[in-house]
Computed example of a mutant assay.
Amino acid sequence: MAEAFIHGLILAFGLILPLGVQNVFIFHQGALQKHFIHALPAVLTASLCDTLLIILAVFGVSVMNFSSLTKTVLLSIGILFLLYMGWSTWKSTSSTDKENNEKTAKETFTPFKQVVFSASVSLLNPHAIMDTIGVIGTSSLQYNGGEKAAFALACILVSWIWFAGLALAGRRIGDLDQSGRLMNAFNKISALVMWGAAIYIGFTLAK
């Protein structure tokens, strides 16, 4: 059981580490919000969505069984969300004026928007689905019973710890960046990553 747990930790960490839309969004929220607690809607939503995908993958309910039409609709919605998220992120600016900065954060990324956006980049992201269903789900086939549960638990723990840590790191960068220049540059990079992901999904649908 310990071996399965360690396997899950290493595998999940390797999958979640690379830069992607989900990681960019969580980090961005940590840096944008005045306090870490204000970024919790995004962190909790991403963690819960990953938990759902991991459970589906490990215990055999594959979302890859969706019909072609359903996939097309879901991915199309994902493209629209990513385009809008990129636009909102590109427009957001950082300022040395703390009151103005807080106002911008609240208006641009309300808790509801955080939940919707975080869910979209988690559940409508082909990379996230392939990582969980294709890699984690396949890797779990070698385990049964308690070992399978330990493997799934390890993968889930990595997601929760990683997203919380990512938001905390973003908050720290936000505190250090008094001029706002670093966050303005990061906003532009984040927007480009989101638009790039939308284009990639578009190519996926066109195949």
Results as ranks from 00 to 15, higher is better:
residue 18 P to E: 07
residue 20 G to C: 12
residue 20 G to D: 11
residue 21 V to K: 05
residue 21 V to T: 15
residue 22 Q to I: 05
residue 23 N to D: 00
residue 23 N to I: 02
residue 25 F to D: 01
residue 26 I to D: 06
residue 27 F to L: 12
residue 27 F to G: 00
residue 27 F to Y: 04
residue 28 H to D: 09
residue 28 H to V: 06
residue 28 H to W: 14
residue 29 Q to C: 11
residue 30 G to C: 04
residue 31 A to S: 13
residue 31 A to E: 08
residue 31 A to P: 06
residue 33 Q to H: 14
residue 34 K to E: 15
residue 35 H to S: 15
residue 38 H to E: 15
residue 39 A to Y: 06
residue 39 A to S: 15
residue 40 L to M: 13
residue 41 P to N: 00
residue 41 P to L: 01
residue 42 A to I: 07
residue 42 A to S: 13
residue 42 A to G: 06
residue 43 V to I: 14
residue 44 L to A: 15
residue 45 T to K: 01
residue 45 T to M: 05
residue 45 T to D: 03
residue 46 A to W: 07
residue 46 A to T: 15
residue 46 A to E: 11
residue 47 S to D: 05
residue 47 S to H: 05
residue 48 L to R: 06
residue 48 L to E: 08
residue 50 D to N: 15
residue 50 D to G: 15
residue 53 L to A: 02
residue 53 L to E: 00
residue 54 I to C: 03
residue 54 I to H: 01
residue 54 I to F: 03
residue 54 I to M: 06
residue 57 A to L: 05
residue 59 F to D: 05
residue 60 G to F: 12
residue 60 G to K: 11
residue 61 V to S: 11
residue 62 S to N: 11
residue 63 V to L: 12
residue 64 M to I: 15
residue 64 M to C: 06
residue 64 M to A: 14
residue 65 N to E: 13
residue 65 N to G: 09
residue 65 N to D: 14
residue 66 F to A: 15
residue 67 S to I: 08
residue 68 S to C: 00
residue 70 T to E: 15
residue 70 T to F: 14
residue 70 T to I: 14
residue 70 T to Q: 15
residue 72 T to Y: 15
residue 72 T to C: 08
residue 74 L to F: 14
residue 75 L to I: 05
residue 75 L to K: 01
residue 75 L to C: 01
residue 75 L to S: 00
residue 76 S to Q: 07
residue 76 S to H: 08
residue 77 I to Q: 06
residue 77 I to W: 06
residue 77 I to M: 13
residue 78 G to E: 06
residue 79 I to Q: 01
residue 81 F to E: 05
residue 82 L to D: 11
residue 82 L to F: 12
residue 83 L to I: 14
residue 83 L to D: 04
residue 85 M to N: 09
residue 86 G to K: 09
residue 86 G to Q: 10
residue 87 W to N: 08
residue 87 W to S: 08
residue 88 S to K: 12
residue 88 S to T: 10
residue 88 S to C: 06
residue 89 T to G: 05
residue 92 S to I: 14
residue 92 S to Y: 10
residue 93 T to G: 07
residue 94 S to R: 13
residue 94 S to A: 12
residue 95 S to V: 10
residue 99 E to K: 10
residue 99 E to N: 09
residue 100 N to V: 08
residue 100 N to L: 11
residue 100 N to R: 09
residue 101 N to A: 12
residue 101 N to Y: 09
residue 103 K to G: 09
residue 104 T to Y: 03
residue 104 T to H: 04
residue 105 A to Q: 02
residue 105 A to F: 00
residue 106 K to T: 02
residue 106 K to L: 01
residue 107 E to N: 07
residue 107 E to F: 02
residue 107 E to W: 03
residue 108 T to S: 01
residue 110 T to Y: 03
residue 114 Q to L: 01
residue 115 V to W: 04
residue 117 F to R: 03
residue 118 S to M: 02
residue 120 S to I: 03
residue 120 S to V: 03
residue 121 V to A: 06
residue 121 V to Y: 09
residue 124 L to H: 07
